[in-house]
C-alpha cells in the first residue's frame, strides 16, 4: 500500500475535554477522557452490548460481549486516547485514537438513542482536542463511502479524503506540525 497523504495545513485546534453541553434533545452531555476505572469500562461494555448491529462499520463494534471485551481491551490500552460522552452515568458515545506507527487511527460510535442530537460532532472535536494536547500529529480513518452522515461529519471537522480507490474511503487530518509534537 502507498503511504498515506496528509494535508500540509494543521487543522483548527479544538478544545480538549472535560467539556459539557446540552444536546439537541435537551440532555446534558459530559465529555471526559476515559479514566481506566472498572465503572467506566463496564459502562462502555454495556453501551456496545446494546449497540445496533446495523450501525457496525468494518466489523466493529463486534457483536458478542466476550468479543466486545477483547476489542475494548485493545483500544483502551495505555498508548491509546479515548474520550467518552456521558449522559449521567450512561455512555452515549465513545471516540478513540489507536496508535499506528507515526499516526493514529480514529473511530467514533454514538449509541442509537443518542444519534442525531449533535453529540458526534462535539465528541470527535473533543477527541481531536485531546489528541492535539497529547502531541498527536497525524490521524487517519476509514469510512464506508455510502455513510454520508459520517463522511460529512469528518469533513466538517477538517478531514480530507486521502484514498478513494478502495471499498472504504480513507481520510486524514494533521493536528500539529512535526516540531510542535511533544
Amino acid at each position: 500500500m502507498s503511504p498515506r497523504t496528509y494535508s500540509e495545513a494543521v487543522a483548527d485546534p479544538y478544545e480538549a475535554p472535560p467539556l459539557s453541553f446540552t444536546d439537541g434533545d435537551n440532555r446534558t452531555i459530559e465529555l471526559r477522557a476515559y479514566d481506566g476505572s472498572d465503572e467506566e469500562l463496564e459502562a462502555l461494555v454495556e453501551m456496545y452490548d446494546a449497540f445496533d448491529p446495523s450501525d457496525r462499520a468494518q466489523g466493529i463494534p463486534p457483536g458478542r460481549e466476550d468479543r466486545i471485551r477483547d476489542w475494548l481491551d485493545n483500544i483502551l490500552g495505555d498508548d491509546c486516547l479515548n474520550v467518552v460522552a456521558w449522559s449521567d452515568d450512561e455512555v452515549a458515545g465513545h471516540a478513540t485514537l489507536v496508535p499506528d506507527g507515526d499516526a493514529y487511527e480514529l473511530a467514533i460510535f454514538v449509541h442509537q438513542d443518542y444519534q442525531r442530537a449533535g453529540i458526534g460532532t462535539r465528541l470527535i472535536k473533543a477527541l481531536l482536542g485531546h489528541g492535539r494536547e497529547s502531541g498527536v500529529e497525524k490521524v487517519w480513518l476509514t469510512v464506508e463511502r455510502w455513510n454520508r452522515a459520517a463522511v460529512g461529519l469528518y469533513k466538517t471537522v477538517g478531514f480530507e479524503t486521502s484514498d478513494a480507490e478502495s471499498f472504504e474511503l480513507e481520510m486524514t487530518i494533521r493536528l500539529s506540525e512535526p516540531d510542535e509534537a511533544a
Binding site: A57, Q58, G59, I60, P62, W71, N74, I75, T96, V98, P99, D100, E105, L106, A107, T142, S166, F167, E168
Partner: peptide, 14 residues
Amino acid sequence: RSPMGKIQIGNIAE
C-alpha cells in the same frame, strides 16, 4: 485488521 480492529478487504478479494 487495522490497528483499530476494522476489517480491511484487500484488492484481490475486492
